[in-house]
């Protein structure tokens, strides 16, 4: 067990954002968190890194757990000059060989001297991924990491994540709303809307009524998602609540 939450609830201001979230993530798993806008997906990740404190319940991390975090959107103020190399060296500079390896792993070799601000959206997301990989994380957290990428770009990004997982053996928790793309490369899907609506293997979740009503899919659309997956062996799962 790398990380788990027990009856985790988070309040931001007066609003209860997350309620009684129970989550367990094992080494090597890819878990996708999906949910509509404002459902608390990002807050869940922020609670896992300790950026927001729970109002009740708790987060339990394996001792010595290292976390790589790729935020949803990083705005770098234009008054702050920053090369990619310098950015990668925060908070502590890596050995040059480690830097090269992480850059290559994320597919952004050769950008070290560039200003961070001059990067394209896709390049910047990969640089963020490279930085998260530097510490050889046990757990990689990705918050809508493919926002601003086109379809091909985000498919490539997820392939990269998959190969990173195989190379490092880390667990991945990612937040997304691109159901079709994400589900292809995930072991488990958790569908949240303040609380956990349903969870399980991708096939089971996309077929579940909770999922379909949450995303307002009518039957045709639901079938499209379903068929999209149909070339996989359809395994029966108990995942849906």
């Amino acid at each position: 067990m790398l990380v788990s939450t027990h009856e985790l609830s988070v309040r931001l201001g007066k609003r209860l954002i997350l309620e009684n979230i129970n989550l367990r993530v094992q080494r090597g798993e890819i878990v996708t968190v999906i949910g509509p806008n404002g459902s608390g997906k990002s807050t869940l990740l922020r609670a896992l890194i300790g950026a927001v404190a729970p109002c009740s319940g708790r987060v339990v991390k394996a001792p010595g757990l290292t976390i790589g975090y790729v935020p949803q959107r990083l705005h770098i103020d234009e008054t702050l000059p920053m090369t990619v190399r310098r950015f990668m060296s925060l908070p502590k500079p890596p050995a040059p060989s480690e830097l090269d390896a992480a850059m290559a792993q994320a597919g952004v070799s050769g950008l070290e001297q560039q200003q961070v601000m001059s990067l394209s959206g896709g390049q910047f997301q990969r640089v963020l991924l490279a930085r998260a990989l530097l510490e050889k994380p046990d757990l990689l957290l990705l918050d809508e990491a493919t926002q601003g990428l086109d379809h091909r770009g985000s498919a490539g990004f997820y392939r990269q994540i998959d190969s990173v997982r195989q190379a490092l053996g880390c667990a991945v928790i990612m937040v997304s709303h691109e159901l079709h793309v994400v589900m292809r490369r995930t072991d488990r899907v958790i569908c949240i809307n303040g609380h956990i609506c349903c969870e399980g293997e991708p096939e089971a979740v996309s077929a579940s009524p909770e999922y379909q009503s949450l995303f307002g899919l009518d039957d045709d659309e639901a079938m499209a998602v379903y068929r999209h997956r149909n070339h996989h062996q359809h395994s029966h799962t108990e995942g849906a609540l």
Binding site: R46, L74, I76, L90, P91
Partner: peptide, 15 residues
């Protein structure tokens, strides 16, 4: 370095 990281993004700093 810690100041720079916290200036860049508080969540990255937390992580």
């Amino acid at each position: 370095s810690a100041l720079l990281l916290a200036t860049l993004n508080p969540d990255l700093a937390h992580a």
